[in-house]
């Protein structure tokens, strides 16, 4: 008799379909039943049907949520990268031609889903900005927070600009780049999330991409600290991040790990 059989020998596993659909199994039982479910088409079909029935009970309890919930959820969503789909492990970015050409507008890989999905707000939404910065800073030690104090004035300056707008892009591994930029200030606050620590001697470098011009370095990221990029003019089309040797490079020496179009934050004219 299989292990599962021994575990379930006292009962027909099919009889657990209804308690499972109602979330009325204990955790260990739930895990056992899900294992069984993966191999039992009849059970899976029955659970699907019973779950749809249970969901009718859910609908009947619907109630208007407090308005504040919406803002909290949307702010949290903007600061949170998505998971990657379980099924695919494709390279995170298509090949990219460095140099005089702007990055391609469209993803060249034969996948329907764009790798980077920019999103912009038309006004500087204070809640979102604070939430995304808080999410970044929450990871930091006190020392790091102290070290950031000087820069925080600079960041606040960008955030306070009347034309400050934000955009985020993520790759299909759930990692993301966030930018809050102001055309009038010519500055942007850029954050990376999910890229982790690089091996010793390597650093993430931020580049400004413009049509007909070489990539220009905007600075180096210190772990996951926001970077303030200055001197952006309206022709800036996108940002790109590469992994470079310590101290950075005058020109990118590797493929970008992530890019973000700046059109949605008012640049790229």
């Amino acid at each position: 008799m299989s292990l599962l059989g021994r575990l379930l020998r006292r009962e027909d596993p099919h009889s657990l379909a209804a308690p499972y659909a109602l979330d009325a199994l204990e955790p260990a039982e739930r895990v056992r039943f899900e294992r069984h479910l993966a191999r039992c088409e009849r059970c899976a079909a029955e659970v699907r049907a019973l779950t749809e029935d249970a969901v009718r009970l859910a609908w009947s309890a619907a109630a208007a949520p407090p308005a504040a919930l919406r803002e909290r959820v949307l702010a949290a969503v903007r600061a949170t990268p998505q998971e990657q789909p379980a099924r695919e492990h494709t390279p995170q970015l298509p090949p990219h031609v460095w140099g005089g050409q702007p990055p391609p507008r469209r993803n060249r890989a034969p996948r329907p889903r764009p790798l980077l999905v920019p999103f912009a707000t038309t006004t500087a939404a204070a809640a979102l900005v604070v939430a995304s910065l808080f999410a970044v800073q929450a990871d930091h030690t006190q020392d790091r927070l102290n070290a950031e104090r000087d820069r925080s004035r600079e960041i606040a300056h960008v955030l306070a600009a009347p034309d400050a707008r934000s955009a985020t892009g993520h790759d299909d591994r759930g990692r993301s780049i966030g930018v809050i930029a102001s055309v009038s200030e010519g500055r942007a606050v850029v954050t990376l999330r999910g890229y982790g620590a690089l091996p010793n001697g390597r650093v993430h470098q931020l580049w400004l991409m413009r049509p007909g011009a070489q990539p220009r370095s905007l600075g180096l990221f210190g772990r996951d600290t926001p970077l303030v990029a200055a001197g952006l003019d309206r022709s800036a089309t996108s940002l790109a991040v590469t992994v470079e040797p310590d101290g950075g490079s005058p020109r990118p020496t590797s493929q970008p790990v992530v890019q973000l179009a700046l059109e949605s934050v008012g640049f790229g004219e």
């Binding site: 609908w59 309890a61 208007a64 959820v73 949307l74 789909p85 999905v117 999103f119």
Partner: peptide
């Protein structure tokens, strides 16, 4: 699933009421 925030806002409108109502019914605390 493709990272579309606007779609999420629209989805929020559809599901937040049933989600909140169901959860409140079970936990019985707003």
């Amino acid at each position: 699933a493709g990272g579309d925030h606007r779609a999420f806002e629209r989805l929020y409108v559809l599901v937040s009421g049933p989600v909140f109502g169901l959860v409140r019914r079970v936990v019985r605390d707003t």
